[in-house]
């Protein structure tokens, strides 16, 4: 009986320890953006409007060896005429300290809604790219990038 009780309490102690570890992990994670912060940012811009799939070609490496310099190339399908063009493109990351990466604004003079830059990624995470058309239509694309070395100076 005594032995069993000791076993129980040890199990409890282990459980409590595991819980504390998870809690501290969560606590550490709070400093980073997550899917919710990205969703909140999108809500701020577009409210509850739905996002359609397609039209966006989001080109990011599957595995980034150096999170400090990760190339990102975006291309949105559009005729880019005065009547029908891509107005804006916003890029977010759900595992960086701050969710925003870059926001582009295009004009019909661009001829092609395409832009490339380089970004920092702190850890393995999803890249979310949304495009706003001149008609008001919204599109979304997502990609996951595995980061071997984080890019946050940490």
């Amino acid at each position: 009986m005594d032995f069993q009780q000791a076993g129980l309490s040890r199990r409890h102690a282990l459980k409590a320890g595991a819980f504390a570890a998870v809690a501290s992990l969560l606590g550490a994670k709070l400093a980073f953006a997550d899917e919710k912060t990205v969703a909140d940012e999108l809500k701020k811009l577009y409210g509850d409007k739905p996002f359609a799939a397609g039209k966006i070609k989001l080109d990011v490496p599957e595995i980034a060896e150096n999170g400090l310099v990760v190339p990102i190339n975006i291309e949105v399908e559009s005729p880019m005429t005065d009547a029908d063009y891509v107005k804006a493109v916003h890029v977010y990351a759900d595992g960086n300290p701050l969710p925003g990466i870059v926001s582009y604004s295009f004009t019909p003079a661009c001829g092609k809604a395409s832009a490339a830059t380089r970004m920092r990624l702190a850890q393995t995470q999803n890249i979310v790219c949304v495009a706003e058309m001149s008609s008001g239509a919204l599109h979304m694309a997502k990609a996951n990038v595995k980061v071997t070395i984080g890019g946050c100076g940490g």
Partner: peptide, 11 residues
């Protein structure tokens, strides 16, 4: 023609 708002996540 074109503009980009860069956040701290730009290299």
């Amino acid at each position: 023609v074109f503009s980009a708002d860069w956040h701290p996540a730009i290299s």
